[in-house]
């Protein structure tokens, strides 16, 4: 595997840890979205363009939107 894959993998692991350990929930959502976006790159490396286009529209767009709407519904951030 190329160096780019390893680099993206390390970034994914870091953003996964940050998504879980962030103090604010909004930061967690953004890091989860970043993780989905990076996984799109790996799907393209794995020669799966269909999966990549689905993950790009779902993971980066709709999942974040649904989570932020739900967060607004329960009234903002909570420790």
């Amino acid at each position: 595997m190329t160096a780019a894959t390893i680099f993206v993998g390390i970034l994914m692991v870091i953003s996964g840890i940050l998504a879980i350990e962030s103090k604010k929930l909004l930061d967690s959502f953004i890091f989860l979205s970043l993780l989905s976006l990076l996984s799109v790159f790996l799907f393209i490396v794995l020669k799966a363009p269909d999966v990549a286009i689905t993950e790009a529209s779902v993971g980066a767009g709709l999942v974040t939107a649904v989570l932020i709407l739900a967060l607004r519904k329960i009234g903002g951030d909570e420790k």
């Binding site: 286009i53 767009g61 709709l62």
Partner: peptide
């Protein structure tokens, strides 16, 4: 475009539908 050309190019009904939902958003 994505879901009409699903049998020729990457894509299809599932990503096309998601993109339309993003438009509604």
């Amino acid at each position: 475009y994505i879901f009409i050309h699903g049998h020729l190019t990457p894509g299809g009904g599932f990503p096309g539908g998601t993109i339309i939902a993003a438009g509604i958003l």
